[in-house]
Nucleic acid binder design. Structure first.
Lengths: 233, 233
DNA sequence: CTTTAAATTTAGCCGAGCCTAAAATGAACA
DNA sequence: TGTTCATTTTAGGCTCGGCTAAATTTAAAG
């Protein structure tokens, strides 16, 4: 019924679509999943036949409600497993994603919900991504904006980190750049978008690509945002 | 490399061989794994090619040291996961086997060893089966004997339970028949081998098949064992 | 020693999920 | 408008791990 591959496809469609209504392209899926484009075409036919997506040939796919439920449940499992591996088993922040990528497909709803209870019903995972209660959707209630779009010289609260390689996460964690941390941008290189940021007493450099992964609360940036021109390439 | 199917085959060969040196037959494997005999034949060829078993056509298979290591590691993961699900996540004793059957193939060594540490390095799982330290073998140091071979009117300590269906485990647990419990046999029906056993104040009936799954410490039964004629069919 | 029954293996097939190469489609541009 | 080029789909093939049906081997019984 709901195989590993199927869950991975739905999860990836969900993530690529974001909250937008735009269709997800075959090639984008192929790249994210690390498979060839024809493999995606084939799977699309299957997912459409099972009523999990709507597929307009040559135009891309949308999740149906049924498909979205599977995607959300899979992502929820991933996040709870990550939080559990960190909090209960003491694995490090940067190594749990690979484990969770596998376990999300094996852990039953019963087990994952027990994990969530044992953790005290956390609302976010180690990267700051939201964990909803069972059967609710995943949308982040917070208004977030990427660090590379944030204004200079303002104290910002780091809310969550988009998916990154373990090395990058370790780099960030070693410099105190974890969810909840306070940072401010000291300088922005106009062409590349590289940033110098302050975390406590220390200053660190982030290139634009890494900065894009750091999401901060948008609330206190609103006032200044009109004056900035975006910054990211 | 080490797929789900491969691990299941090796694990099952290990269990069917027991500590004996006897070969495991294709049909026995097919039955335990719930697949057709030709599927087993095919997989045997593959396992032999990978040096995990020795296969003498028409005569059955033996594990090699390499195959035994995979089997033992898989079984160890199963038992640690079971204990973890019971102790940490509060699942019930009878429902964890099915979960562990899946998770044993997904959980990394790193994760399972962290579970074992968090549990305080337990030496046995919820059914009383031994859990060795990492990379050691599984052999039960205790001398055990089945309840259906044990003498009458002697206090016996229940050491472990062989694998059973959840309903049977629930039946036993409800009557206090869990690892560590003290029992004595009040009566044995000669033909069928059915038993009446005392657990604390209560008396319960066990048929021979169920009694065979209950393993007790053999120490105190030795003296009397010569006088009995075995009992089990 | 032969016949028969049971166990095992071979042969050939299927679905899942991937691949490459080739054809079809759509979009952008001359 | 027509051409080109990137994207997508179709066609055909591969491995894994199952299956059934038929052949083979072993073992047991006459």
């Amino acid at each position: 019924m709901s195989s590993r591959a199927l869950q991975d496809y739905l999860k990836t469609i969900y993530k690529l679509a974001g909250d937008s209504t735009s269709a997800v392209s075959t090639s984008a899926l192929a790249e994210r999943l690390g498979v060839a484009a024809p493999s995606v075409s084939g799977m699309m036919k299957k997912l459409a036949a099972e009523g999990l997506i709507e597929h307009v040939p040559y135009q891309g796919v949308h999740l149906t409600d049924k498909g979205r439920r599977v995607a959300v449940e899979t992502i929820r499992k991933h996040r709870i497993v990550e939080q559990f591996l960190v909090q209960v088993l003491g694995l490090t922040w940067d190594e749990v994603d690979a484990e969770a990528e596998i376990l999300e497909h094996c852990v039953s709803s019963r087990v994952v919900n027990r994990m969530w209870e044992v953790l005290g019903r956390p609302v976010s995972d180690p990267h700051g991504s939201p964990i909803p209660p069972p059967d609710e959707d995943l949308h982040d209630a917070r208004r977030l904006c990427s660090l590379c779009d944030a204004p200079l010289h303002v104290s910002l609260r780091l809310a969550r980190l988009s998916e990154r390689l373990p090395e990058e996460l370790r780099y960030l964690a070693e410099r105190g750049l974890v969810p909840g941390a306070s940072v401010s941008i000291e300088e922005r290189v106009p062409s590349s978008g590289a940033l110098m940021v302050r975390v406590g007493e220390r200053l660190h450099v982030l290139d634009a690509l890494l900065a894009q992964a750091l999401m901060v609360d948008a609330i206190m940036t609103d006032a200044v945002l009109g004056e900035e021109d975006g910054g990211c390439t």
